[in-house]
Amino acid sequence: MSTLTQNNKRRVLAEKLIEYALAAATGITILTTFGILFSILFEAIEFFKLQSFFYFMTGTEWTPGVEGAKFGAVPIFTGTLVITFIAIIVAVPIGLFTAIYLSEYASKKTRDIAKPIIETLAGIPTVVYGFFAAITVAPFIVNSFASIGIEASFNNALASGLVMGIMIVPIIASMSDDVISSVPDHMRKGSLALGMTKSETIKFIVLPAALPGIISAVLLGLSRAIGETMIVVMAAGMRANLSFNPLEDMTTVTVRIVDALTGDSAFDSPDTLSAFALGLALFVFTLILNIISVYTIRVFKEKYKSSNL
């Protein structure tokens, strides 16, 4: 009797210890988030002790590494937005129509072939996309525009944007595919039975029903585009150029972060610390997008009680 309770006690203790160990492992993800936030925040504060926060947010000149360096991030933000915008313009129609084709039209056989193709696009490392953008796409764009007499930079925003768009296609396509597939079939039947064509049913019934999920997918793609580094480091420019012409060179937040941290300035110089100020902006912006995205998909899940998302 007493050995039994002793055994039990030991068992209960062991169980508790295991549970604590598991909880501690889970805690690491929390630590990671705070680690990212604080490591960026502290250095960013150092930066803003040396440079004006107001000028950082509103200034239009970014000239690090020189006497009287200026750190106005507006041209960097606009460069990021222009390239992201091009990427989204490419990725949303291709991704969404691919999802529509896969979920509404494709036979099982076509699906079995097409899904791995989309997954292959997702499996290509971004450095490889970057190389392709810089070595193949950018010269192609320059030559094409030269043939109609328009001059384009070899670091044009268009090349990075286009390739980044292709990179995001699988994110939007596979998430939208899941969402569209989980719109209940009886809605399609209801519309078809009213004498609607298939495309009318998709456009007016299926897509509006799937809209929250699609928005969530687009936001996730947007956040990926803004945070994408290698493609722009390799194919976009270094110069903070305030312009909206996609044929000009422009730079992005991520490019400037890489440039600041791989340069040979001292770690506590504003040149290097500017990377953390930009990192903070990137963190805050993508965090907002991610949270909205998670929230909208939750709304969709609750609406259709779909668990495969």
Binding site: R224, T254, T286, N290, V294
Partner: peptide, 18 residues
């Protein structure tokens, strides 16, 4: 969920700092 979507370059900043 959020961590899965944080831009990878920010993990680099974490690695550098920590």
């Amino acid at each position: 969920n959020n961590l899965a979507a944080v831009p990878s370059i920010l993990f680099g900043l974490l690695g550098l700092a920590v």
